[in-house]
Amino acid sequence: MATTPRDRARAQTMNDIVRIGRDHLATHGAAALSLRAVARDLGVVSSAVYRYVSSRDELLTLLVVDGYTALGDAVDEALRAAEAADDDPIAQIRALAHAFRRWALAEPARFGLLYGTPVPGYAAPAERTGGPGTRVIGTLLTLFARGEQAGKLAAPRRARALSATLAADIARIREESGAEASDRVLVGAMTFLVSMIGAVSADVFDMYGVDTFTDRGELFEHLLDDMLETVGAEPR
């Protein structure tokens, strides 16, 4: 269906609101976001903004979806390049992790909104943020499934048994993601995910201290090696 000039004008205004919201997020932080301030930079009276965005929480939701979408796009772009160079799923998991870190370092405020301290009084609506928010996770689970199918993930010497509750959760994740992998590999994928987020957060939020590591990129490579070996990948 063809869009009307009014539809295009509304879409452009929404884009401008999100763009200004991103700028304010970077400058003032999520807790200080204000629709009045956005309206001022947009060049309209504050009441006009409420025709597009109903509240500060609605603006935060738009920024969360925008952030997850941008992160997913960055990961997908990196994986397309990685797949062209190497079909090895473990190499592609590495590419995903590096793309995740690059985006986070380039967009610390947006990364903080997605993975940092929760904004007081705000709860992201799962029906709107769940899909974009699980996009990278779904890609990671698929790569781990491919790694298992290719024989790239060795079984641990001692496998811990899953409780019925955790096994049911893993079965649901398998069904929702479509990642046909064993319980141990999906648990390993979750181990890798939270380790990756923790390693990147330590870098983005300067948990190491200013003068601790000269080359944090090299440190991340070592952490990545250890994370992959933990889930059964062969050492490089």
Rank of each mutant, 00 (worst) to 15 (best):
A2Q: 00
T3L: 14
P5M: 08
P5H: 08
R6I: 14
R8K: 14
A11Y: 05
A11R: 15
Q12F: 12
M14C: 12
I17V: 15
I17E: 00
R19T: 09
G21I: 02
R22E: 10
L25Y: 07
T27E: 02
H28C: 05
H28G: 00
A32P: 00
L33F: 01
L33A: 02
R36H: 11
A39V: 14
A39P: 10
L42E: 03
G43D: 12
V45G: 14
S46G: 10
S46R: 15
S46N: 12
A48W: 15
Y52L: 06
S55W: 12
E58P: 00
L59C: 09
L60V: 12
L62K: 05
L62V: 12
V64Q: 07
V64T: 13
Y68P: 03
A70E: 11
L71W: 03
V75W: 02
D76Y: 08
R80A: 15
A81E: 11
A84H: 11
P89V: 13
P89L: 12
I90E: 06
A91G: 13
Q92A: 02
I93V: 15
R94Q: 06
A95T: 10
A95P: 12
A95W: 07
L96I: 07
L96H: 03
A97H: 03
W103S: 04
A104N: 06
L105M: 08
A106E: 11
P108A: 10
G112P: 06
L114K: 04
L114Y: 04
L114M: 13
V119L: 09
P120F: 10
P120Q: 09
Y122F: 14
A123N: 00
A124P: 06
P125F: 13
A126W: 11
E127S: 09
R128A: 00
T129M: 14
G131A: 13
G133I: 07
R135W: 05
L141D: 04
L143T: 08
F144T: 04
E148Y: 05
Q149S: 11
Q149D: 09
A150G: 04
G151T: 13
L153Y: 10
L153M: 03
L153V: 12
A155Y: 02
P156W: 09
R157D: 14
R158M: 15
R160N: 07
R160K: 11
R160H: 08
S163R: 12
S163A: 08
A164K: 09
T165W: 07
T165P: 03
I170P: 01
I170W: 02
A171C: 10
A171I: 15
I173R: 04
E176Q: 11
S177F: 09
G178S: 03
A181M: 05
R184Q: 14
V185G: 01
L186D: 01
V194W: 04
V194K: 06
V194T: 15
M196G: 01
G198N: 03
S201T: 13
A202N: 13
D206Y: 08
M207D: 00
M207R: 11
D211K: 07
T212N: 00
T212M: 12
F213S: 00
R216F: 06
L223G: 03
D225C: 00
D226C: 10
M227P: 03
E229P: 05
E229Y: 14
E234C: 09
E234R: 13
